[in-house]
Amino acid sequence: MAPTKWVVDPIHSEVQFRVKHLMITSVSGYFRNFNIVAFTPDEDFSEVEEVVFTADVNSISTNNVQRDTHLKSPDFFDVEKHNEIRFVADRYQHVNGSRYKLHGELSIRDVSKPVTVDVEFGGTVVDPYGQTKAGFTVSGKISRKEFGLTWNAVTEAGSVVVGDEIRLHAEVQLVKQTV
């Protein structure tokens, strides 16, 4: 039996991040353009064969044009050379109840590293248009410096401007594809 293919419903999904600024508050951002494709042997998501997530770095938004331009520069993502973030998951591990761990490789710039994110499966439902949808909340943390995003500055008091830990959060709806 062929695996079931699922694709992201971009209107009902969002991918966000948070990072400490001056170590006293967090700044949030998100990607306006991203894609997710998943393959499962069935519809209950008890098993997942593969998940591929990509984000267009040019679509990054922190609601501040100057900051977004800086994030796209060689100081951070260097979109002229590296315009995509990619996560390919190859293992989906049941923790308990509706909680899972998704293990895979995250690639940012020229750096690829193993990353594990937490997944809460919200279930599946048929929407008013007859489409089968599956919902997920995804969260995790990465070190930006491990991916070559090392730019920083220091204040007069000696505090760093941008924290190293990036907190990830996504609300995702996937749509079952019919053959």
Rank of each mutant, 00 (worst) to 15 (best):
N83P: 05
D90A: 04
H94K: 07
V95T: 08
E84I: 14
R91N: 14
T54N: 06
I85S: 05
P74I: 02
F53Q: 10
L71Y: 09
D56L: 05
H94F: 07
H82I: 06
D90T: 07
T54Y: 06
R67T: 03
D56R: 12
D68C: 02
F76G: 02
Y92P: 00
F76P: 00
N63V: 05
P74N: 04
V65M: 14
K72H: 08
H70C: 02
V57L: 15
F53V: 15
T62E: 06
D78S: 02
V79P: 05
N83I: 01
E50R: 11
V95H: 03
E50Q: 14
N63A: 09
A89V: 00
N64M: 05
E49Y: 11
N64R: 09
E49G: 06
E49K: 10
E80G: 09
I85P: 10
K81Q: 14
F53H: 03
A89G: 03
V79Y: 09
D68Y: 00
V51T: 11
F53P: 02
H82G: 14
R86W: 08
I60W: 01
V52H: 10
N58K: 15
S61M: 10
R67K: 06
K81W: 02
Q93P: 01
T69V: 12
S73Q: 01
R86A: 01
N83K: 13
N64S: 10
N58D: 14
D75H: 08
V52E: 13
S61H: 07
V57I: 15
F76K: 04
H94M: 06
R86C: 10
E84D: 12
F87R: 07
V79H: 08
K72E: 10
A89R: 00
V52M: 04
N83E: 15
D75W: 05
D56I: 08
T69S: 11
F87E: 04
D68A: 10
K72D: 02
A89Q: 01
N64C: 11
K72Q: 14
T54A: 05
H82F: 12
S73A: 09
N83G: 11
D75L: 09
V51C: 11
N64Y: 05
H82N: 14
V88F: 04
D75N: 15
R91T: 14
I85V: 09
V79C: 09
T62R: 12
E84Q: 14
N63T: 09
R91W: 04
D78A: 05
E84C: 07
N83R: 11
N64L: 07
V65D: 14
D78W: 04
A55P: 07
H70S: 08
D56F: 12
D56K: 13
I85L: 13
